[in-house]
Write a protein that binds this DNA or RNA. Structure first.
Lengths: 204, 204
DNA sequence: ACCTGAACACCGTTCAAGT
DNA sequence: ACCTGAACACCGTTCAAGT
């Protein structure tokens, strides 16, 4: 994990890890099984830290309102991706039902139940909420949300009229710089809005 | 792309591509620049197909209601990930403002404007909507949504009481099998619900 | 029980040389 | 202008051998 944090996931090889540990590459195999298992273990450890208490992102007391608890968890995931950008992409290939993820899933389940989502809809909404959080966080960590280079800005401006009609209607708005912390908070607000709307629909 | 579809992204190497083309690996470099540029080109081509007309996922006429157009686009992205699972993960590391993505972004912009989202909030909501769609689609393609092996089912059942209290309240619901097509449609419905709620809030 | 060394079948990319 | 061949510095993993 130190290797991935400092030099990127590409710098993590059985050979580099072995050197760091002071051992021959093949000595790792009885311990970690394979490189895939090593990466799996890294993600698992991170997920464990996420819901561990005490820790950098200790969960709110269970008594806190569901909106608060969901926010704290989401911020924890985002912080994890900031500190360990290599992890964001790996999370999509790790079953959400795996050991390390179950606690996280349970926290979202509890929040949704408290919000008034009918049990039958809770698993689907958990997947929806977690997909959004991971999608946002992977977009930030992976670079999907930026940067807008001058070349791309020029290209956008050229095609504004015909091929990008909606862009043309947003000319000034698209020039403002984005506060990503504020955007994440606003998204969490709207996610809560959706959860409430789904709960209302269920109440009839 | 044929190589990635048939044997996975791992089978795509400069050497394997060169062999397929009937040329030496080094002969590719003047044409594609580097392997990173090759992967970038693959994603760009896919995004181009997504909004091309005519094509496998031709967009609705601009006259169709925004909810319809958003659904068609989202289904197109999902279908793309089904046909080309290797692409899902790559999309997070490709700037959403890159050439190939701009048309897709514009379609979402237009839908949100028509839904009544105030211009100042449209870019943020576009990122939110696309993050959810990509997050969902990458979860399906990457394997995050399954499978629940017997081992994991057992472990979940063991920890049900204390560590996973919300799981315990969902015992029966968690045993039902999921229709992923229906789930995606339900998620799109709830996404539209959120968009309407945000528009309503803006209307005061 | 745990580790080493050599080997196999791969990578992306450079460089100089060919036609 | 376009391609080849050899080489460099890497990979994950196997196998047999050591202590």
């Amino acid at each position: 994990m130190a290797l991935a944090d400092e030099r990127g996931l590409g710098a993590v090889s059985m050979r580099s890890v072995a050197e760091l540990v002071g051992v021959t590459p093949m000595a790792l195999y009885p311990h970690v099984g394979s490189k895939a298992a090593l990466l799996d273990g890294m993600v698992g450890r991170l997920l464990g830290q996420l819901v561990a208490e005490p820790g950098p992102t200790a969960p709110d007391p269970p008594a806190a309102p569901w909106r608060e608890r969901l926010g704290t968890l989401a911020r924890g995931v985002r912080q994890m991706a900031v500190r360990h950008p290599w992890a964001a992409g790996l999370l999509f290939s790790r079953p959400a039902v795996a050991s390390g993820s179950m606690r996280t899933v349970d926290l979202i389940f509890a929040a949704l139940l408290e919000a008034g989502i009918p049990p039958a809809e809770v698993p689907r909404l958990e997947r929806m909420v977690s997909s959004f959080i991971l999608g946002h966080v992977a977009s930030e960590a992976g670079g999907r949300f930026g940067p807008l280079t001058q070349d791309l800005r020029d290209e956008r401006y050229r095609h504004r009229g015909q091929e990008l009609p909606a862009h043309a209607r947003l000319d000034d708005v698209l020039e403002t710089t984005v506060d990503w912390d504020a955007e994440f908070e606003a998204n969490l607000d709207d996610l809560a809005l959706m959860i409430e709307a789904v709960a209302d629909r269920a109440r009839g």
